[in-house]
Design a protein around this nucleic acid. Structure first.
Length: 423
RNA sequence: GGAGACGUGCCGGAGCGGCCGAACGGACUUCACUGCUAAUGAAGGGUUCUUGUUAAAGGGAACCGGGGGUUCAAAUCCCCCCGUCUCCGCCA
């Protein structure tokens, strides 16, 4: 939800943001009109209600003889109050409907345009060269007895898989490595629910344009989360946080579910795009004034992970039109995937400013003692998908994979993943 | 699965349909007092919207788990939902 005060005082800023995203800007004027309609409807109701209260006092104080007449009068008045209340509520709902179509205000400096208009901020690490024909992650995963797509499909269908042996260990190792890094930086680990109520799913903005990519359990009316961001954002809903000691940081560990509707035929091979995976997600609640600095910190922790894993990557500033509705800015880190000859997204970190918290009613106390919406930020610290880049980047001619040094302690000192006999 | 109890502010805990945004206690903040701490005394507080203003002060409305209803008037009565707890059963 955007800031209604900003909408009222500075509609041009909102329009400019809508334009940068390639969104409809007429909705801004619609929202403005709905806002003033809402306020006048509310004013009418409040005035009537105040008079009704006065009337109630008179009824109470009246003598037996006066009472019937007064009550008759009050009865009529009550109907008017009720009608005004209904109008005010309707006007409020109408404003919410319109305002919710406005996406978060894009931060100054975010490149305009769509998917292809991102700006590369930096490229880090050597692109790996091989003096042999590199195998792709699935071929390697099968050689190592680490990834089993066939049986995944047998049990659960396309885009499902088993991680076994060193594959399973690799994922757990990655998660633990990420968790350690998070804990060194003041994050509280949190294992989150992966089924959430509609209002939480809606509040985090995932039931907007992307509603069809979300699994929904109809009978229970619960949603399977595509990221722990959902539960982490809902964690402090309707609360006033104490941010005096700095940002509140959580590292959420959860399995993520995505229906991948609309991506049929895309990345069908291996575990690059799957319905279920694990992820360690950073989530931060902070004073909006510190949000951009925190955003940079999230990126630097992500880079720390990728560098420790010896991956080659680039950091991109995602263009306005490619941002989620809650994000004011988003940095993606894409790692080089040798057999694809291109960079693929391994992490994504968004600064949602106060957009998410406004809807979820998460506030903090400012220096003056007033409450104000907090800023929320989120970012990936490790996911199953990283296995793709790790296997391919560190592979050897014989199909074995050298374990990056930083990961070895999490694999019981294992230095090389070696091919195994039939599975 | 069966039976019951409960859900009030930061916490505990009262609350008769109008005098209840809500007693009382604790915590908290400020002030006073006391070498310090503690103790004591006094005062003060919630949230949201709205109006107002450069800003404020001030005014108004809403909020007692959520949503409906009855009533001139609802924390209080009725219905539905959600949550918590206790007992019994069942399964680990």
């Amino acid at each position: 939800m955007i800031d209604p005060v900003l909408l009222r005082n500075d509609p041009d800023v909102v329009k400019r943001s809508q334009r940068a995203r390639g969104n409809d800007e007429s909705v801004v004027d619609e929202a403005l009109a709905a806002e003033s309609a809402r306020r006048s409807a509310l004013g009418e109701f409040e005035q009537l209600r105040a008079s009704q209260k006065v009337m109630g006092e008179r009824v109470k104080a009246a003598s037996k003889e006066e009472k019937p007449a007064l009550i008759a009068e009050a009865q009529e008045f009550a109907a008017a109050v009720k009608a005004a209340d209904a109008r005010a509520k309707e006007a409020e709902a109408e404003f919410d409907r319109i305002a919710s179509r406005i996406e978060n205000i894009v931060i100054e400096g975010v490149p305009a345009g769509g998917e292809d208009n991102f700006v590369t901020l930096r490229t880090v690490g050597e692109v790996p060269e091989f003096d042999f024909e590199p195998r792709d992650h699935l071929e390697l995963g099968e050689l190592l007895g680490a990834i089993d797509m066939e049986r995944g499909a047998k049990v659960s269908g396309a885009r499902f898989y088993f991680l076994r042996g060193v594959g399973a260990r690799l994922e757990i190792a990655l998660m633990n490595m990420a968790l350690d890094l998070a804990m060194r930086n003041d994050f509280t680990p949190l294992i989150t629910p992966t089924l959430v109520k509609p209002e939480i799913m809606g509040g985090t903005g995932f039931l907007g344009e992307h509603a069809d990519e979300v699994y929904h359990l109809k009978d229970q009316d619960l949603y399977l989360t595509g990221t722990s961001e959902v539960a982490l954002a809902g964690y402090h809903s309707d609360e006033i946080l104490n941010l005096e000691r700095g940002p509140v940081r959580y590292a959420g560990w959860s399995t993520c579910y995505r229906s991948e509707a609309g991506s049929h035929g895309k990345d069908t091979r291996g575990i690059l795009r799957v319905h279920q995976f694990n992820k360690l997600e950073m989530f931060v609640y902070t004073d909006p004034a510190n949000a951009e600095a925190e955003h940079d910190r999230l990126v630097s922790w992500q880079e720390e992970m990728l560098q420790a894993l010896g991956l080659s990557y680039r950091v991109i500033d995602v263009a306005a039109g490619d941002l989620g509705s809650s994000a004011a800015r988003k940095f993606d880190i894409e790692a080089w995937v040798p057999t694809q000859g291109t960079y693929r997204e391994l992490t994504s970190t968004s600064n949602c400013t106060t957009f998410q918290s406004r809807r979820l009613q998460t506030r903090f106390r400012t220096e003056t003692g007033k409450t104000a919406p907090v800023a929320t930020l989120n970012g990936t610290l490790a996911t199953t998908r990283w296995i793709v880049a790790i296997l391919e980047t560190h592979q050897n001619a014989d199909g074995s994979v050298t374990v990056p040094e930083a990961l070895r302690p999490y694999l019981g000192g294992l230095e090389v993943l070696s091919p195994v006999e039939g599975t």
